[in-house]
Computed example of a mutant assay.
Amino acid sequence: MRPLFGTLLMLVTGMAAALVIGFYPAFLTSTDAEDDEQQGFHDKIVIQFSHVVAENTPKGLAAQDFARRVEEKAGGRIKVEVFPNGVLYNETNEVDALMNGDIQMIAPAVSNISERVPAWQLFDLPYAFLSEAAVDEAFHGEIGRLLNAKLEEKHMVGLAFWKNGFKHMTSNRGPIIHPEDLFGQRIRVLPSRVIEAQFSLVGASVYPIPFNNTYQAMESGAVDGGENTVSNIHSKKFYQVQKHMTLTAHAYLGYAVLVNEAFWKGLPPREQSLIREALGETSVWANRNAQEMNESQLQELEQYEGIRIHRQTPEERTEWMKAMEPLYDQFEGILGKELMDKVRALQNKYGGG
Rank of each mutant, 00 (worst) to 15 (best):
P3N: 03
L4T: 10
L4H: 05
F5V: 14
V12K: 00
A17C: 12
I21T: 10
I21Q: 05
G22W: 08
Y24S: 15
Y24A: 15
F27L: 14
F27D: 04
D36T: 14
F41T: 13
F41A: 13
F41D: 14
H42N: 11
D43Y: 14
V46Q: 05
A63T: 01
V70I: 04
E71P: 01
E72A: 12
A74C: 08
R77Q: 12
V80A: 01
V80L: 02
F83K: 02
V87G: 00
L88V: 13
Y89P: 13
E94N: 14
V95C: 06
A97Q: 08
I106A: 01
A107K: 00
A107I: 01
P108G: 07
A109F: 07
V110A: 15
N112V: 13
V117A: 13
V117D: 09
P118E: 01
F123M: 09
D124G: 09
P126L: 05
A128F: 05
F129Y: 13
L130S: 02
S131W: 06
E137T: 08
G144C: 03
L147C: 09
A149R: 05
M156P: 00
M156A: 06
K167L: 15
T170A: 12
R173F: 03
P175Q: 11
H178N: 13
E180F: 10
Q185N: 10
Q185V: 08
P191I: 00
V194W: 06
I195M: 04
E196F: 07
S205H: 12
V206P: 06
V206K: 01
V206A: 03
V206G: 06
F211M: 07
Y215P: 10
E219F: 15
A222I: 07
V223N: 04
G226P: 11
N228D: 15
N228G: 09
T229D: 01
T246Q: 03
L247V: 12
T248I: 05
H250L: 13
A251R: 10
G254I: 02
G254H: 03
L258G: 06
L258N: 01
E261V: 09
F263W: 11
L267W: 03
L267P: 10
P269V: 10
E271C: 09
I275V: 01
V284A: 12
N289T: 10
A290I: 06
E292V: 11
M293T: 04
M293R: 04
E295A: 15
E302T: 07
Q303H: 13
Q312K: 04
E315R: 09
M321K: 06
E325H: 11
P326K: 05
Y328C: 06
L335W: 07
K342Y: 03
A345W: 00
